[in-house]
Amino acid sequence: MQLALFIIFGLLAVAGAINFLLQRHPINSALSLVVVMMSLAVLYWSLGAEFLAAAQVIVYSGAVMVLFVFVVMLLNAGEEERTHGSKAAYAVGFPGAAAIFCLLSFVFLSNGKSFGVTDLGNHLTHAANNIAEISQVLFRDLLLPFESTSILILVAILGAVVLARKEH
């Protein structure tokens, strides 16, 4: 079950990411990014993070990507054209990304034994469920950081309004 979920949605995420890379139009890239985020939500759920799976769907594919699509439509962004800068980017981008991928997967796979395997069902230590455990940590131990993120969001809203306002 978990293996099937991982293979299906892992392949879906990789396909979405590759499509994101290859598409020229920003709307197509945004929609493939939504595919990646939805499959990541399923993978979070398969790792026992139900709250984060819901938050991923609501915050990322719901709010953030809708904001991106709105901006793409608002600015009427068309297909990107190739410039001389993109040749250098191709020459550096693909080998660099491939090198980073090779390094990361070498480290991960050579230490693969010590990471262990997933065991869905007993991943929690003592709490009743995932949301109970998260809320206990978030609202009791980490109350101050949690409240300061609300101030961060407030400042971000004000900053976005100030930046996007028409100057006159």
């Binding site: 995420a13 990789v14 491939a98 990361l104 991960f108 796979l109 230490n111 395997v117 997933t118 065991d119």
Partner: peptide
């Protein structure tokens, strides 16, 4: 159910990260 090694998840994350860099 067949268990999935954690390192597969990490390799998937590495793939997504590299595509993001590219």
């Amino acid at each position: 159910s067949a268990a999935v090694p954690i390192s597969w998840y990490l390799v998937l994350a590495a793939i997504l990260f590299s595509v993001g860099i590219a």
